[in-house]
Simulated scan of single mutants.
Amino acid sequence: MRLGRRHRLLILLAAVLLLTGVAVGATLHAAGRATEKDRARSDGPPVRSGTVTLDAPGRSVFRNMAWGPHRDEISSVADSDPSGPRTASGVRCLRFHTAAGTGVCLQSVRGGLREAYRAVVLDARLREVRRYDLAGIPSRARVSPDGQTVAWTVFVSGDSYAGTAFSTRTSVLDVRSGAIDRNLEDYRVVVDGRPHKAADINVWGVTFADDTRFYATVATGGRTYLALGDRSARTLRTLHGNVECPSLSPDGTRIAYKKRVQGASSDAPWRLYVLDLRTLRETATAERRSVDDQAVWRDARTLVYSLPGNYGSDLWTVPADGSGTASRAMTAALAPAFTGRR
Rank of each mutant, 00 (worst) to 15 (best):
A135L: 04
I137S: 12
I137A: 10
I137F: 11
S139G: 10
R142C: 11
G147F: 02
Q148T: 15
Q148F: 09
Q148E: 15
A151I: 08
T153Y: 00
F155A: 05
F155H: 07
F155S: 09
F155I: 07
G158F: 00
D159A: 15
S160W: 02
A162V: 13
T164A: 08
T164C: 00
F166G: 03
S167G: 12
T168F: 10
T168G: 11
R169M: 01
S171L: 09
L173Y: 09
L173G: 12
R176E: 15
S177A: 10
A179Q: 14
A179W: 07
I180G: 06
I180L: 15
R182V: 13
L184M: 11
E185V: 14
Y187D: 07
V190H: 05
V191Y: 04
V191Q: 01
D192E: 15
P195F: 09
H196L: 13
K197L: 09
A198T: 01
A198E: 04
A199M: 04
A199I: 06
D200V: 00
N202V: 11
W204I: 10
G205E: 05
T207Y: 00
F208M: 02
F214S: 07
A216N: 04
T217M: 11
T217G: 10
A219K: 02
A219C: 01
T220D: 07
G221C: 09
T224L: 01
Y225I: 03
Y225L: 02
